[in-house]
């Protein structure tokens, strides 16, 4: 598993696209919003938590279709399936590599982009915390979607259609944490729900995703 993680990270770094592209996408989304809704800082501050969460979620989606596609095309996925590594572990490791190259940078960049949207003071810390807790679930759910569509020629669009509805609960709890923190309300409940959701996703979805991959390899 460790070897697979190192390999995927090395590939992401060498391919160059991984880190940079989704961060740039996140930046662009956040930049476009004020053009759409107007430059008043009060209004931007109000919608900032939602924009940052939705932006991070879309940026996360961007690189998902390559998660298994490259390994599928060059035959590695067949070889991994025959190897001693359990497919569930392969899926979980690849989701982890995806998180490290996408979710983690997005989480770290979010507070900086928060400045652009005039995110109110208490929001920064909890934006960071909620994204750190929520983005692993986004990667894992995305890996499930990628596993379903791995054999398809134009899977990218379908992948979004399959994955986005599954992102709804994570988005709701994640953005709610930040909103409540800013309004000075108690946010322990959504935070706990977010963490629980992520843990349950990480525990269960690798099995569904691995089953989907095995079916696609047949």
């Amino acid at each position: 598993m460790g070897a697979l993680l190192t390999r995927d990270l090395a590939l992401a770094v060498k391919a160059g696209g991984g880190f940079g592209l989704s961060l740039a996408f996140f930046l662009i989304v956040v930049t476009l919003v004020p053009f759409g809704v107007g430059p008043e800082t009060g209004r931007l501050a109000e919608i900032a938590p939602g924009i940052l969460w939705v932006g991070a979620l879309l940026a996360c989606l961007l690189s998902l279709d390559r998660l298994f596609q490259l390994d599928w095309e060059d035959g590695s996925l067949d070889l991994l399936a025959v190897s001693p590594l359990p497919m569930e572990g392969v899926v979980a490791t690849k989701a982890l590599a995806h998180w490290i190259t996408t979710g983690l940078p997005l989480t770290l960049a979010a507070p900086v982009l928060g400045l652009l949207l005039n995110l109110p003071g208490p929001g920064y810390l909890w934006l960071l915390v909620s994204l750190a807790l929520g983005t692993p679930a986004l990667s894992m759910i995305g890996a499930f979607g990628a596993a379903l569509t791995v054999g398809l020629k134009r899977g990218g669009l379908l992948l979004s259609l399959l994955v986005l509805p599954l992102y709804v609960p994570t988005l709701i709890f994640g953005a709610e944490v930040v909103r409540r923190a800013i309004d000075g309300q108690a946010f322990a409940t959504p935070l706990a729900m977010l963490a629980g959701l992520t843990l349950a996703t990480l525990a269960l979805l690798p099995f569904a995703a691995a089953a989907a991959i095995r079916i696609n390899l047949r």
């Binding site: 090395a10 060498k14 391919a15 070889l79 025959v82």
Partner: peptide
């Protein structure tokens, strides 16, 4: 006990 080598070599071009 099985190792398999198919049509594709499963190589990573960047490595």
């Amino acid at each position: 006990s099985i190792a398999y080598a198919g049509h594709a070599d499963g190589l990573k071009a960047a490595l």
